[in-house]
Structures are given as structure tokens and as C-alpha cells.
Amino acid sequence: MKTLAIVALAIAGFTFAPTTASAHDHGIKFNKAKHHHSFHCAPVYMGTKEICRTTQCRYGYDSCGHQYVYHVTVVTYANYYSDGSYTTFQKVYRA
């Protein structure tokens, strides 16, 4: 099937140029003498943990402008990385 697609594109006037980049270098050029790989510097994601869970009262208004109370559960999570850093985020769920 791939051969038919190439033949069809060749008939339509498309040309194919061989690429020198291999699949493993991610398009990043580096000096082989220095062995500098800029894509290896990022810390690796290790996992997510739940840090805190609370239930809160929130207030809303109906279509007539009357105030009402509803409850939400707020969960705080942390994403941990191999260099010891972390990021936190919260998700709010209607209780």
C-alpha cells in the first residue's frame, strides 16, 4: 500500500529527497566530539500523589438572584520529578 502511495505521488510530480537525520536524534544537531545532548537535561516525571483533600462550602445564585449553598471537594495533587522538584495543582469536584 505504501508503494502505491509513493507511485501515485511520483506521478503527480512530487519528488522525494533522502533525509540524513535518523529517528533517534529527534532533529537535534550536536557535536559528536563533545557529546552534548540538550534533550537529556530535562528531569524525568516520577509520579503524582494526592497531598490534601478538603470539603468547602461555596455560594451560588439561581436565575432569580437568590443565593444558595453547595459543597465541593478540593483535592491538591503534586507531580514529582527525578531532580527533586515538584509542581502542584488542584481539582475541584462537586460533592
Score class of each variant (00 low, 15 high):
residue 1 M to I: 10
residue 2 K to L: 11
residue 4 L to C: 02
residue 5 A to D: 08
residue 6 I to Y: 04
residue 6 I to V: 13
residue 6 I to M: 03
residue 9 L to N: 09
residue 10 A to E: 00
residue 12 A to E: 01
residue 12 A to W: 07
residue 14 F to T: 05
residue 14 F to D: 07
residue 14 F to H: 03
residue 14 F to Y: 15
residue 15 T to C: 06
residue 15 T to M: 10
residue 16 F to L: 14
residue 18 P to R: 08
residue 19 T to D: 11
residue 19 T to H: 02
residue 19 T to C: 10
residue 20 T to W: 03
residue 21 A to L: 12
residue 22 S to C: 13
residue 23 A to F: 02
residue 23 A to I: 14
residue 24 H to I: 12
residue 24 H to Y: 08
residue 25 D to M: 08
residue 26 H to Q: 14
residue 28 I to T: 04
residue 28 I to F: 13
residue 34 K to N: 09
residue 34 K to G: 05
residue 34 K to C: 05
residue 36 H to N: 08
residue 36 H to G: 02
residue 39 F to V: 07
residue 42 A to Q: 07
residue 43 P to D: 12
residue 44 V to S: 10
residue 44 V to W: 04
residue 49 K to A: 12
residue 50 E to M: 15
residue 51 I to R: 10
residue 52 C to N: 15
residue 53 R to T: 13
residue 55 T to S: 13
residue 57 C to R: 02
residue 58 R to C: 04
residue 58 R to L: 03
residue 59 Y to F: 15
residue 61 Y to M: 02
residue 61 Y to S: 11
residue 61 Y to E: 06
residue 65 G to V: 07
residue 66 H to N: 15
residue 67 Q to V: 14
residue 67 Q to A: 14
residue 70 Y to G: 04
residue 70 Y to H: 12
residue 71 H to Q: 11
residue 71 H to P: 00
residue 72 V to E: 15
residue 73 T to I: 11
residue 73 T to P: 01
residue 73 T to F: 06
residue 74 V to C: 11
residue 76 T to Y: 02
residue 80 Y to V: 10
residue 83 D to K: 08
residue 85 S to N: 12
residue 85 S to H: 11
residue 87 T to N: 12
residue 88 T to N: 08
residue 90 Q to H: 03
residue 90 Q to L: 04
residue 90 Q to F: 01
residue 91 K to L: 13
residue 91 K to C: 11
residue 91 K to V: 03
residue 93 Y to D: 04
residue 93 Y to W: 06
residue 93 Y to M: 09
